[in-house]
Design a binder for these strands. Structure first.
Length: 271
DNA sequence: CTAAGGACCTGTCGGC
DNA sequence: TGCCGACAGGTCCTTA
């Protein structure tokens, strides 16, 4: 998916829709990760009041109801001009009337259907209750991470990708942050010094902040808004570059698997 | 409790 | 050109 920067970019892109009234809410394919509610049409007539984000979940609050949207691996929310022909994989389509009277279309597009659109009241506790701190908040610091890693034998990469530890750090940004911090993704979490965890936290915050500024990373079919793409992928140092020379020392970058996920790193620079 | 692996899907790419 | 397997941004759930 869309990792946190892509979700945040999507959230920001929805700001122009605040105050818009829902005219239609059509479910073309309800079989996402969980079934899209059959009564999504109850949004019709409600105005969109706010768009918030928690972890990689978008929370769209309307006058009476709030929906949770997750983009899964391949989801995107696309704003289109009214009358744009429907394409494949547009599973849920809203039409809206903006406060200025213009109409627009907001379309949930998701080829792999790992995403979700749910009533918050049904799923908030299940999905949101056990999440760790936001990575850019003050609650996520070196002391917190050190305490979390205490006694843990798992590789550090799987720890920082665990949403119960810290949210929003997916495979791309975990890979990049560990490279920048000089820590092997396989290093046992409980055996990393405070100083090195401090550095890891700094790099996670820096890499996420920078990616958000640049509109996220565009890979394959990710678009935060029809036609526009993010630029951060041009700055990825090691993700997707197995076999290429390490940007720091020139040794070939190695690929391994941690928790079934590709993990590129430099055996020379990351210990 | 922790840790590892499976499951859910479609699309794309490389190799033969 | 066609087929087949491997792989892709996530994360809940089951099993050990």
């Amino acid at each position: 998916m869309p990792e946190l920067p892509e979700v945040e970019t999507t959230r920001l892109s929805l700001a122009p829709l605040l105050g818009a009234r829902v005219d239609t809410a059509d479910v073309h394919c309800p079989s996402l990760r969980w079934r899209v509610p059959d009564d999504l049409g109850r949004l019709v007539g409600q105005r969109l009041l706010s768009v918030a984000r928690r972890a990689k979940y978008l929370l769209l609050t309307f006058e009476q109801d709030t929906i949770i949207i997750h983009l899964g691996m391949s989801g995107s929310l696309q704003q289109q001009a009214h009358g744009t022909p429907k394409t494949k994989h547009e599973h849920v389509v809203f039409t809206l009337t903006l406060p200025n009277g213009n109409q627009c279309v907001l379309s949930y597009h998701d080829p792999r259907r790992f995403g979700a659109i749910l009533w918050q009241q049904d799923y908030a506790s299940k999905l949101l209750d056990h999440l760790g701190p936001e990575p850019l908040s003050d609650a996520f610091d070196g002391n917190y991470l050190k305490a979390y890693c205490q006694g843990k034998n798992s590789p550090i990469k799987s720890i920082i990708m665990n949403q119960a530890c810290v949210v929003g750090v997916g495979n791309i940004y975990a890979t990049e942050s560990l490279f920048l911090a000089g820590i092997s993704p396989k290093r046992h979490a409980g055996r990393i010094s405070q100083t090195r965890l401090d550095a890891l936290v700094r790099h996670i915050k820096a890499v996420l902040s920078k990616a958000i500024e640049q509109g996220g990373s565009t890979l394959r079919d990710y678009r935060y808004n029809a036609g526009k793409t993010g630029y951060f992928q041009q700055e990825l140092l090691v993700y997707g570059r197995a076999g290429e020379p390490c940007p720091s020392c020139g040794a070939p970058l190695k690929n391994t698997k941690i928790n079934q996920r590709a993990s590129v790193y430099c055996t020379n620079c990351q210990k």
